[in-house]
Amino acid sequence: MTLREIIETLQAKVVLDNHDERMVVERARASDLMSDVLTRVNPGALLLTGLTTPQSIYTAEMADVTVVCYVRGKRPQEETLRLAEERGLVLLSTDLPMYESCGRLYKKGLKGGTET
């Protein structure tokens, strides 16, 4: 799924635009618990989270996630934004809650972290 399609599916705002919207994202992960995210790594994945602290970016960095989308209309903290900018990540923000964000993307064929 392209970044463009993800943005449209989630009606997301682009908070930090660091990549071409034709970039392909193959998998998504969703959690507010960073340790859960780190149990498995999917390079280039999308991370959906409600956590807006700097650790959302450090976690994305350690797990080689390239796109972070904050759910429930959350906006990243200032320090979070700065870190993401330095690392060239894409940040999105959607008003949809977590479950609906995941559901919409899954319905459109975006795979989870463990599927083959």
């Binding site: 618990l33 340790s35 859960d36 650790q55 959302s56 976690t59």
Partner: peptide
């Protein structure tokens, strides 16, 4: 700590893995 996205008891198990 949980509100910060940690403290779910996965830290050391993750390190081990």
């Amino acid at each position: 700590v949980r509100e910060l996205g940690f403290g779910a008891g996965m830290g050391l198990p993750n390190i081990k893995n």
